[in-house]
Design a protein around this nucleic acid. Structure first.
Lengths: 365, 365
DNA sequence: ATCATTTATAAAAACGTTTGAATAGTTGAC
DNA sequence: GTCAACTATTCAAACGTTTTTATAAATGAT
């Protein structure tokens, strides 16, 4: 690559025009493969391309954006970058966007709902052509996103169901996941299962519970209300470890008998494991634990955490594709390819934190 | 905020000029607080500001960039977004950049050195005004970054020492960290300590080892070469878990006696813990383990991992400040405020994975 | 009263593209 | 041999700023 030109001035489209002997318009048409370029013979095109190569011309993105009113950027608003759940989705988005002309603009709301609005404003200011919101957690005002949609900027929420009438989303099939988790424990022989559910307000939590209940019905298993607990609704994602710890402690204190705990998500599960460990109950020998998400640490801890894996990368890729598709259609006619929220299949990942019940144990303290 | 204008046309500087009764030039001067604006009376300024407010004017970033040749963007090249180490640094960068006019453009190299060059090209294409590289791991061709520096774009590497003559970096004081880790184990009574060092080629690994050796000398402790092992140099960061697992297994098989293992980083430490657990040795009762980094999962696992914390957020903030400072100086005179690579102090975080030696144990299966 | 300086504002030239309308030359149909 | 359609290329007008230079009035010193 001969790109090391430390020349003073920028090589412009005009330079290419002069060098190739054609007008700037022609050069532009060729380079953009515009409709009008269909009449331009291959020979001419080649000459222009040669000149481009020779001079090392790179279009000026500022001028291009100004004239065409397109930023070639897609905003990605991540609720919390430190959450591996978000990160993996983001990687999926980036992966899909890489071979395109679009650049993802990532903003991290640091888990602060109040910031979201501000960031969305910034995105609009930067004239993003599409917006993907990666949400690990509920709680923020949807109206901002509906605003975005009003501005004709295609938008999509990944990872959580926000139940907005106009904003679509892609997420895991939580009900299927709950069902699968429950089935796994059941097949290992567990009958006395405790639950740490997510916050009530969260759609994801409700769907997972629905799946759990459905399996229980299918299997003829009765759930004991004394073993069903909820995480407080006020927390943010980073405190679900503490939530799991606290709720599990209460469960242990209650003296109820259980051989497994089904946690709302992986972080909660880690809180639960800590509580069990502090109470002298080993995992999985004395109690099985299952999580939900499959964030990277889940594979590394000892024991490894059995969990329901969300296809985060795929969800990210789906999101990027969705936006790209809309952008493409926009260019052609006017009817965007609307679809409903998209559900993706979860996968059970069995690791060391769950084991078969050998003999009914009730080891307390 | 009256921003809900669904008007057709954009509000331009011209509109403001008309509405306020002044020329576009004057409006621009006022809005940018340009030097020339010092002669403009407060009254005029107020009128213009009022008009801006009334019309809801927002400058067009495309036009501004084209004319001023500034993108107001700072590139952040992250070697691996999925690595919490990188993520936390990134958050520091973002945090510092948020109140400024600069927008971070994040690109994720997905751990592939081959991609780095391509991404740097893209950054240049997008005309970033500065570049921050967040490196969790060694191994990529520095020449690209030196190229960037040649183009007068201030650049800085965060997190690892790349030993380039022209590119500065900010990182943790690895030697101090190694020293502190060793001191911690020593104070708990450990004398037979095994080491899983990082790849030889890595400057960080060498510095940590230097700190370890210095403590040993200071304390009059002899290190046994049979207890010193290296991770293979070919791996990427995500496989250091496997590396730790493998090397620890070899140590255990060797039959050598040790009461603690000092691992190169947290992931390695988790691999080590897994190996110990599989061999029937519990942590910390039968063997203490200490890591390096303090990535978020380290606090969540059971037992929590004792480790040397890198001030990642602060390093990110430092990086952002460094770039901003250079950019500011650039505007004024020409001499950039060069400094050497900057070292930041690490902190020991004691958690459950290390404990005092009670009685010299040699429990081998 | 005159000239230099300061104060207040504007004109106009970029910045480097894209794009709709315009200009010709060439074909083919009748 | 004329009209329409196609082919090949160009003109020129934006896109919305920033910034250099210019203008013009007021101030102040001599």
């Amino acid at each position: 690559m001969t790109r090391i030109s430390l020349n003073r001035r920028r090589v412009t489209l005009m330079d290419v025009a002069r060098a190739s002997g054609f007008s700037p318009s022609t050069v532009s048409l060729v380079l953009n493969e515009a409709p009008l370029a269909r009449y331009i013979p291959a020979k001419t095109k080649q000459k222009i391309l040669d000149a481009v190569e020779r001079l090392g011309y790179r279009p000026d993105i500022f001028a291009r954006s100004l004239r065409s009113q397109r930023s070639q950027m897609i905003g990605v608003l991540v609720i919390d970058l430190a959450d591996p759940f978000c990160t993996l989705i983001l990687q999926g988005v980036e992966h899909k966007l890489l071979p395109t002309a679009y650049l993802p603009i990532v903003m991290d709301a640091h888990n602060q709902p109040s910031q979201v609005e501000r960031y969305v404003e910034m995105m609009i200011e930067r004239r993003v052509e599409g917006l993907i919101t990666v949400a690990n957690w509920l709680l923020f005002d949807m109206t901002v996103l509906e605003d975005i949609d009003d501005r004709q900027i295609p938008t999509l929420v990944v990872g959580r169901d926000l139940e907005s009438p106009t904003v679509n989303s892609v997420l895991v099939d939580n009900e299927a996941g709950g069902y699968a988790a429950m089935e796994h424990l059941y097949q290992l022989g567990h009958r006395e299962i405790a639950f740490v559910r997510g916050p009530r307000r969260m759609a994801d939590s409700r769907m997972r519970w629905k799946g759990i209940r459905r399996f229980a019905t299918d299997a003829g298993l009765r759930l004991h209300s004394a073993l069903i607990r909820d995480l407080p609704g006020t927390m943010d994602s980073s405190s679900s470890f503490d939530g799991g710890l606290k709720v599990a402690n209460e469960l242990i204190q209650s003296g109820e008998k259980f051989t497994a705990i089904l946690a709302f998500d992986d972080l909660t599960a880690y809180g639960v494991i800590r509580a069990l460990s502090e109470a002298g109950r080993r995992v999985p020998e004395s109690c099985s634990v299952i999580g939900f998400d499959d964030v990277p640490p889940s594979a590394l801890s000892t024991p490894g955490l059995t969990t329901i894996q969300q296809p985060m990368s795929e969800m990210g890729e789906y999101a990027a594709e969705y936006i790209l598709k809309h952008l493409a259609h926009r260019r052609e006619d006017g009817t965007p390819p609307y679809g409903d929220s998209h559900l993706m299949k979860p996968t059970l990942i069995a690791r060391g934190s769950t084991a078969a019940v050998t003999k009914p144990v009730r080891k307390k303290k």
